[in-house]
Computed example of a mutant assay.
Amino acid sequence: MSGVRPATEADHPEIVALTNRAFRQTGPQASWNVEDMIAGDRITAELLRQDLADKPHAHLLIWRNEGGDHLGHVWLEPADAGTWYLGLLTVRPDRQGRKLGRALLGAAEEYARERGAARMRMTVINRRDSLIAWYLRRGYQLTGETRPFPYGDDRFGRPTRDDLAFVVLERAL
């Protein structure tokens, strides 16, 4: 897939802007899978820099088309014993419906596989039924594990409901 490469610091402003647009923007231009149960920004430049500094083995990949347009990005992180964590999979809302998310997911899985990954793991907010179903159609399975939502930590936004948690999905590569 043309244009998938490790992001540089120069890419960070676009990554932050697209992440917030795709995850939190509501209205007619919103993504089909917006996190409308959380208000505020999904990420800030400071938080992204801190995450990269705290996790030096993580890979933040950016996807650009041949014209240089930022189509999407994804976070990959080696976890343990051949399992990698996938997060922040983001595609431009105005380009959705063209199977770009599928293509970016496949490229991310291949990138991790080439670096020794045997399994991919992720967490998704339990109330994002459409997104969970999308990952299930891509071969991911619910593990039965849940993780608590970080209530009181507004770094990723402010939840507007009190029943949020994360479900864990996993897929063999």
Score class of each variant (00 low, 15 high):
52 L>F: 02
106 G>D: 13
91 V>D: 00
161 R>Q: 13
103 A>P: 00
61 L>M: 11
77 E>K: 08
63 W>G: 02
145 E>G: 02
165 A>F: 07
90 T>Y: 01
97 G>M: 04
60 L>F: 07
39 A>M: 05
92 R>A: 15
107 A>Y: 08
18 L>H: 11
128 R>L: 15
79 A>N: 12
152 G>K: 13
24 R>L: 11
124 V>N: 02
75 W>Q: 03
30 A>I: 02
8 T>A: 13
149 F>D: 10
111 Y>N: 08
114 E>L: 11
171 R>V: 10
12 H>P: 00
120 M>Q: 03
72 G>K: 00
107 A>C: 13
144 G>Y: 00
57 H>K: 14
136 L>D: 10
20 N>P: 06
113 R>H: 08
72 G>R: 00
93 P>H: 03
128 R>C: 12
164 L>T: 08
16 V>D: 12
160 T>V: 14
33 N>R: 06
122 M>S: 08
159 P>Y: 05
95 R>H: 08
49 R>P: 01
163 D>S: 09
47 L>K: 10
108 A>R: 05
165 A>C: 15
109 E>V: 08
31 S>Y: 02
9 E>W: 04
44 T>S: 15
167 V>K: 09
26 T>K: 13
23 F>V: 02
107 A>Q: 14
32 W>L: 14
32 W>G: 15
90 T>D: 07
161 R>N: 06
17 A>Q: 14
101 G>P: 00
78 P>N: 07
37 M>T: 12
172 A>T: 14
57 H>R: 15
96 Q>R: 00
166 F>S: 07
94 D>N: 11
83 T>F: 06
106 G>Y: 11
129 D>F: 12
36 D>Q: 09
162 D>V: 04
65 N>P: 06
12 H>W: 15
75 W>V: 01
20 N>D: 13
144 G>L: 03
170 E>M: 06
20 N>L: 12
12 H>I: 07
165 A>D: 13
59 H>T: 00
66 E>C: 03
142 L>Q: 12
147 R>H: 10
171 R>Y: 04
9 E>Q: 12
52 L>P: 03
162 D>I: 02
90 T>V: 15
